[in-house]
């Protein structure tokens, strides 16, 4: 399985570093040919307005939509998460619609409001996940079929729907490889798409000390280190 990382703009090198550390076959995607070669795709952090513009002028937006329509695995962080959303707020526009979420850009403020925080509640196996937020967006609405895999400040920061995953933080900018490993497992089909078949799911409590949200309860299938 070959993982493509969209390499038009942003921190795509950091994603490639994580995937290489996990021993995955991975490479940059700058062209339609490279996109066609990818079995799964990572859309990195960067500036979402720039990424939209580049997808358009490099005539990659329609090929990407067609590629995504095949239901292939995709993972977006920060700007990548914005692109994958159904609805984008501030300024408002439609996203690629792979995930049934509404995402607000720069929701925490300006750069001086960027921060690092541990996830307060996570799917089992992701306890203590370090979340680095850079001018980060917020998932304001999460659709009924979207699973929340981690929360910070009572807000979902990592979600999944089918074979699509998105995070408002940057797991590529830490030493923690668990999120990328979860994506590789999702992409290779080693986890079920909905509900849970993992035996540990029924006995593993949530990492949160507060009450887990209903969607966290459905998220266990991506767990495991």
């Amino acid at each position: 399985m070959h993982i493509g990382v969209l390499a038009l703009q942003g921190d795509f090198h950091a994603h490639l570093t994580q995937l290489q550390r996990l021993g995955a076959s991975c490479g940059e995607v700058r062209s339609r040919v490279q996109l066609a070669r990818a079995d799964a795709l990572v859309i990195p952090g960067g500036e979402s307005t720039t990424l939209w513009r580049l997808l358009e002028v490099l005539e990659l937006e329609q090929p990407l939509r067609a590629w995504l329509a095949e239901g292939k695995p995709v993972f977006g962080t920060c700007a990548g998460a914005i692109l994958l959303a159904r609805e984008i707020l501030g300024p408002d526009r439609a996203g690629l619609g792979v995930l049934d979420i509404s995402v607000r850009r720069n929701a925490y403020g300006r750069q001086i409001d960027s921060f690092l925080a541990p996830a307060e509640s996570t799917a089992p196996g992701f306890e203590g996940l370090e979340c680095l937020f850079i001018r980060a967006p917020v998932f304001e609405r999460v659709g009924p079929r979207v699973e929340v895999l981690a929360e910070v400040g009572g807000r979902p920061v990592w979600v999944r729907e089918g074979r699509a995953m998105a995070a408002t933080f940057h797991p590529e900018l830490t030493h923690d490889l668990r999120v990328h490993r979860a994506f590789l497992e999702l992409a290779s089909g080693s986890t079920s798409s909905c509900g849970s078949s993992a035996p540990s799911a029924t006995v593993t409590p949530y990492a949160s000390s507060s009450a887990p949200s209903a969607s966290l309860a459905r998220s266990v299938s991506v767990g495991g280190r």
Partner: peptide
Amino acid sequence: DGPVDLRTKIGLAEMLKGG
């Protein structure tokens, strides 16, 4: 591995790459 402040700062510079 750097201090938190430096990580958020360099993090933004990472986001600007290729632009």
